[in-house]
Design a protein around this nucleic acid. Structure first.
Lengths: 191, 191
DNA sequence: CGATATACTTACTAGTAAGTAAGTATCAGG
DNA sequence: CCTGATACTTACTTACTAGTAAGTATATCG
């Protein structure tokens, strides 16, 4: 056993992340992960002693993923409209792969029932996303790529809120709802 | 007992709604309601045999509340910008009273774990809100009260998504986040 | 070849979830 | 004053939750 080290741990995180996004943090259990992977409950506790540890690992990994995306050569070299579409694509992906909401949205809804370390990490995730968007919109407007009234901060809040909200609405309506939101935000931002 | 008929039932619905909005549908139990009301678990099952029945009643009541608001003389007589603010005020209220998200947002995040009758009712709620917003924005633009590109449908989706998303983000950041979103949407809509 | 670490399984506990069956107090109507 | 309905309580069941303690198979390293 343990032939591929880190493999089981990664699979647990992948499944945990998916279940968190599809069912909410209070909507899945270690038993769901275990049965779906063909391992035992306690195997998960070996890698993640508490559900909080698993949740934390999932959020931290997602933050790193976004940081890597934002700092990547491919992203940095994009023109502003393409980079905006790239950002939207991250969210569109949640919808395409599994009928899920985004991580920040899932965490925010369950926020009050989350263990405190997860609350802090969720806060950091949202702060990261907002900070990136604010800077991107600010510089984009200065370059003439975008046009919007008010502060970049307020516009960043609106853009992130639309991503979260539209992804959630798409679950009860259909995926065209998300696409409609993206089109409209593009129209509102690009002169 | 039963001196004030309907009183206990209403209190259960009030508390159930609050807990649904604050903790999510999977984040509260009948025991939470019972202990907080000083009654027994089974008393809730008497009024709402299953948790699904309680959930349905809460959503149906919220839909009726919105219908009454939209059809009320006070609302109908408002000028377009005031009516828009009135709509925003419904959401701001969620934040003010209890640090909660809106009903549609809460239901959408837990959607896949919801019993099917609740899923249908949640869909109807969102459809109602979108239909009202679409018509309001369409007529408002025709009257010159609002200015936005694209279809009223797409703009309605964006406005509702911002309300949901901003309310959720306000939990992990602070209430100024929601106010910023409202200001920005006003700037984007009002010429 | 033996020791140790890794990655599990088996078997369990304590707590909580939704839900039910049967009994009880109160009141309104005939 | 009795009857039946309403609005509960008491006491329980079944199922699932996170979490743990102890044992086991495998791989690696000296």
């Amino acid at each position: 056993m343990g032939r591929l080290p880190g493999d089981t741990k990664k699979k647990i995180m992948d499944l945990g992340e998916k279940l968190l996004l599809v069912q909410g943090f209070n909507g899945f259990s270690y038993a769901d992960i275990a049965s779906s992977m063909g391992i035992k409950n306690a195997a998960i506790h070996y890698h993640f002693p508490s559900k909080c540890d698993l949740g934390l690992a999932v959020i931290e990994r997602a933050r790193q993923r976004f940081d890597r995306w934002a700092a990547s050569r491919r992203t940095e070299e994009m023109a502003d409209p393409a980079k905006l579409d790239g950002f939207f694509e991250i969210y569109r992906h949640y919808l395409t792969r599994s009928d899920s909401v985004c991580l920040s949205g899932a965490l925010e809804t369950d926020f009050t029932t989350l263990p405190e370390p997860m609350q802090e990490e969720a806060r950091a995730l949202v702060a990261d996303l907002l900070a990136w968007l604010e800077r991107f919109l600010d510089e984009g407007r200065a370059r003439g790529s975008f046009s919007f009234p008010g502060t970049p901060r307020d516009q960043a809040i609106v853009v992130l809120a639309v991503m979260q909200g539209a992804l959630q609405m798409s679950r009860v309506m259909d995926s065209s709802t998300f696409d409609a939101a993206v089109s409209q935000i593009r129209r509102l931002l690009i002169p």
